[in-house]
Nucleic acid binder design. Structure first.
Lengths: 345, 345
DNA sequence: TTGATTTATGCACACGTGAACATTGTACCC
DNA sequence: GGGTACAATGTTCACGTGTGCATAAATCAA
């Protein structure tokens, strides 16, 4: 390491025991005020910086939380991490970052590494771990909060914080129905099985509730092995033709990036949005407001999601009770959706 | 901490000394093969996980690097961090993340916290620290790489990696000149003084080289106290009228987000891009390809920037020689720029 | 058999800090 | 003056790991 100056060095220089220095620097009333200020002064002069590693070893806690995300380059993830980081900093916790590339194996590997580093807590966004990692995961007994977990079978002993995918999808679909659309497509993301399933259900149930029978031809799901964020756009482009072939007048997309892909594909094919086709996204990333036409979407409280995850974790660390939480979404109407009537029935 | 099982526990269970266990787990040839495998087996059964904190204390290195960025929600930063993260993971290093909000005070505070935590190295993106933090910074002797440093007076004892702002700006301006534009505006970002100045110089020099006298009325710089990424868009919107008033036919923006703001403002005012006004950005963030019209811009190798920063740092840690580096940019032509001739002279 | 060499393991200490307990000195009370 | 209370500081140990040195057993050479 870098700074070799320890409390022992200071003790030697001041001809006292290292304990006295330790106490003086922590402003312990056990040390006389005179000696205390004197030692603090000396420490400053000598350029002493406490060794947090040693403190962690002694105190058996690192004041660090491990954060695992699928990728850091995703704008959605970026906002969530910002919320986490702010809350962590306020609480005096450091943030150890790792990336899973949406791969359960890399995810559990990151958990194990964080375990070795003795992080006090763990936050995993879009957790993928499932039965295949059950045994390895069960060895890791670190307080953990999962944000928008994606496993089909959730783990009981983790705490979760999620956005209400189901009701968000219902909201989007109802809105399109209210605009007069009947044949409404859905383009999903197979690599987020949990949310995708919930959104698909919300979509289908909303259709049924409106007396519209869901058609399989209206639905396309991007391959589950597409791991990267950037795949969303190309998947949207690739899947549009299939859904269009089913003669839909509106498409609800799993997220905004897919919707952007759809928008680009429409432009190539000369399809005007929203006149010929209405598009809805999900997430409400910053980008949604900047594309043309600005994207109607379902807002996820991303900053809040991160902040709450950290707050839940802090409560866990204090052994306070923690409830799994589901946050509501909001409908955001912009320019990519329009009355069905306008394009003629 | 969590897992109370130490090598001493294993030693007790196997009735050997903890030294033997330590050696066995590290596959030391000093321990007989039989005992070695036996102890490794036992460790696995007992669910032993090495304590990296203790190892760090002993080894006097943490295998951790501290990363300070202005904000994590910025798409440019996201890509750079992704490059850093990947390289760090490959090298077996952890990544401790902190955010400065583009505030020199928060930046130096983060450095000090990382110093306490004894990170092996430090990467700072868009570093703002300047003379005001000189004394505090000089106490921190951790190997450090600055990415795109923003201080007007660079520090000698830090290593830097930057993109060639000056030549990138020249490239952009020359391209607009080549399209026939003469009155070319510049909208800058006062909160990144370093790059902004370099890009402004490149822009002005390119104009002069083409025989065009730079006009102050063509240039507007967003306030330096705007700290957040999201301010870029609104700054672009706010500054457009001033530059338009100077009767320019093209605008070169400090970055893509400002260009997006300009684009939005143009739409509100009924100005069509690129027919009535050509727009160039800088950075080539993902968004640039998705807006309408797709943004012509200067490409920064963001992933490579992060990756190289980490590689430079690793070389520093191995006491190998490291050269400060400047990476080239590339011109990316999309749809927001067009021949001046088209709109008639 | 004896001494030298090799093999396998234990002991003691160090990393830097913090805390329980021990020690010294001082003032106070009866 | 002797005991007690308290203030200020030192001693020792612990956190979990790794390493230099010592030790013990075993092998080998002569």
């Amino acid at each position: 390491m870098n700074n070799p100056i320890s409390i022992r060095d200071i003790a030697r220089a001041a001809d006292v025991s290292h304990t006295t220095v330790s106490r003086a620097l922590r402003d312990s009333p056990l040390i006389s005020l005179e000696v205390r200020t004197q030692l603090q002064q000396l420490a400053r002069e000598m350029g002493y910086t406490p060794n947090a590693v040693a403190q962690s070893l002694k105190a058996r806690q690192t004041h660090t939380i491990g954060l695992i995300v699928t990728t850091i380059a995703d704008p959605f993830v970026g906002r969530v991490v910002r919320g986490i980081e702010a809350a962590a900093q306020d609480a005096g916790f450091g943030l150890l970052l790792s990336v899973s590339n949406n791969d359960p194996e890399q995810e559990i590997a990151a958990m194990e590494i964080f375990h070795r580093r003795r992080v006090d807590g763990l936050i995993i966004a879009a957790a993928r771990l499932s039965a295949a990692q059950a045994d390895r995961a069960s060895r890791i007994t670190i307080p953990t909060v999962l944000i928008n977990p994606q496993a089909e079978t959730p783990y009981e002993h983790f705490h979760t914080l999620a956005v209400n995918d189901y009701s968000g999808a219902q909201m989007a679909t109802r809105y399109l129905l209210a605009l007069g659309h009947r044949a409404i497509g859905y383009i999903g993301a197979g690599n987020r099985p949990g949310s995708n399933r919930a959104r698909l259900s919300g979509y289908r149930d909303a259709l049924r509730a409106a007396g519209v029978a869901p058609q399989d031809a209206w639905v396309r799901i991007a391959p589950a092995d597409h791991r990267y964020h950037s795949d969303d756009v190309s998947d949207g482009q690739a899947l549009l033709p299939d859904v269009l072939a089913a003669d839909v007048s509106a498409i609800f997309c799993y997220n905004d990036m897919l919707a952007v892909g759809v928008t680009l594909a429409c432009r190539e094919r000369g399809i005007t949005i929203p006149e010929q086709l209405s598009i809805m996204g999900f997430d409400d990333i910053e980008l949604a407001a900047y594309v043309t036409p600005a994207l109607s979407t379902i807002h996820q409280p991303k900053l809040r999601l991160g902040q709450m995850a950290m707050e839940m974790l802090l409560r866990l660390l204090k052994n306070e009770s923690v409830e799994n939480t589901v946050l509501p979404t909001e409908l955001v109407v912009r320019e990519s959706t329009v009355q069905r009537a306008i394009c003629g029935t």
